[in-house]
Design a binder for these strands. Structure first.
Lengths: 224, 224
DNA sequence: AAAATATTTTAGACTCGTTTAAATTTTTTA
DNA sequence: TAAAAAATTTAAACGAGTCTAAAATATTTT
């Protein structure tokens, strides 16, 4: 069995690999986990010995299949728990992250399956992130969504996710009335600061900064 | 925040104190936690420094109010999770212990409250053990139940709990058709080995050994 | 290509929880 | 009540994960 710490490292490494296109550096991992580069190096040796990553000193690293498998299992549990907390226990989407961060380490394959079933095998979590299935397969975010900030004027899109998962950002969206599934028509983009004026769900006018639009994901194609 | 290990020690100590009437010994704790007496001594010092117990070397220990509070909070979480797994996620009563053992350490007061509410504030868990409320108050088992092995012939009782929580024992009861709430009339007690012949729920005849009867709790008073 | 800078690794130390083996204290019993 | 037995504690060591500081290596700048 792997420790919580090992699982968290693998999850962090997986996410860095998924996001960034290039190499995964010691410092990236340290930053993501709020720890020091020295600690990361130590852990990389350990993960390497366990064959979860391929690692050569001063020379970056890559995940093995078994490392990816574990990372995806943890991510799956995290996102299923988030969904469960929201759907079954009536939590708000800004409240679930820290709890799921603990739940994701509970070891019970059966439990994961029961939750998955109870939720009717959801494909996305409350923030629009895709949930890996038992085999680690999931919808790729890239193929599905684009940033609201990058979108054409005059068209309508559906909100499918967020980039910033912080409580404050999610609460801000709540206040604006933006939730997953909301329809937004981009009425105009200010050339000066690229702030947007939107029509939300066909009724409400809304102004948002480019900073905010950069953290909202919308369907890749208009009208979907 | 206290570590999982500290919480497990406090829970174990609380349970030993609750059961046994006398002193709580280092060896008792070691046995309960499957560890060594030396480890226990070290931890007792730590818990003492944190004022969760009163401890004088070679001289036993007692729990402080704050120690009891933590132990009861952990027990509360454990039993609520067991109940939740059975009621909300359709687990069987012999499957939930090990999972709840992990869940009980999740830190979120709000989560506990949501589960408690979702279950409509249950007073007992799937094995008939009382669930402490937010203030640590719960029904005392002693006042509520007696062993089926100690009960009068010819009367009817309701099954309210089990002493042995092992999977094999619970599965055995399942097979016999005995569940929480079952009515059992004690038709006869064999003088030789004190085995019992029972009438289960007014219809099914059942023979059980004294060994089994010793692990079944029934309502204190007949007809309840 | 050398110097400056940034990144990464090593070294040494710390905490936590654990172990075994030895020492100490308490309890039992003869 | 003194010796034997049992229980408990201490001592020394270990693995996991962490840290700071120093050394090694890579990268960038000039």
């Amino acid at each position: 069995m792997n420790s919580f710490t090992e699982e968290n490292y693998l999850k962090a490494i997986y996410k860095i690999a998924e996001m960034g296109d290039g190499a995964i550096t010691t410092n990236d991992i340290a930053r993501k986990l709020s720890t020091t580069a020295a600690s990361v190096t130590d852990m990389l040796k350990k993960l390497s010995k366990k064959k979860f990553i391929k690692y050569k000193r001063y020379n970056g690293l890559s995940m093995t299949e078994s490392g990816k498998r574990i990372a995806l299992a943890v991510i799956r549990k995290h996102r299923l728990w988030e969904m469960f907390l929201v759907k079954a226990l009536k939590f708000k989407w800004d409240e679930v992250h820290d709890i799921a961060e603990q739940m994701e380490h509970v070891q019970s394959e059966k439990l994961v399956q029961h939750i998955d079933k109870a939720l009717n095998y959801p494909k996305f979590d409350p923030h629009g992130d895709p949930i890996p299935d038992t085999n680690g397969k999931m919808v790729l975010s890239k193929e599905r969504s684009v940033l609201l900030a990058d979108v054409k004027e005059g068209r309508q899109y559906m909100v499918t996710g967020v980039v910033d998962h912080s409580r404050s950002f999610l609460q801000l969206l709540d206040k604006s009335g933006i939730i997953l599934g909301s329809k937004v028509r981009v009425k105009a983009v200010q050339p000066y600061d690229r702030s947007l004026s939107l029509l939300l769900n066909g009724k409400k006018n809304l102004f948002i900064s480019n900073q905010i639009a950069k953290n909202i994901l919308v369907s890749n194609n208009p009208k979907t």
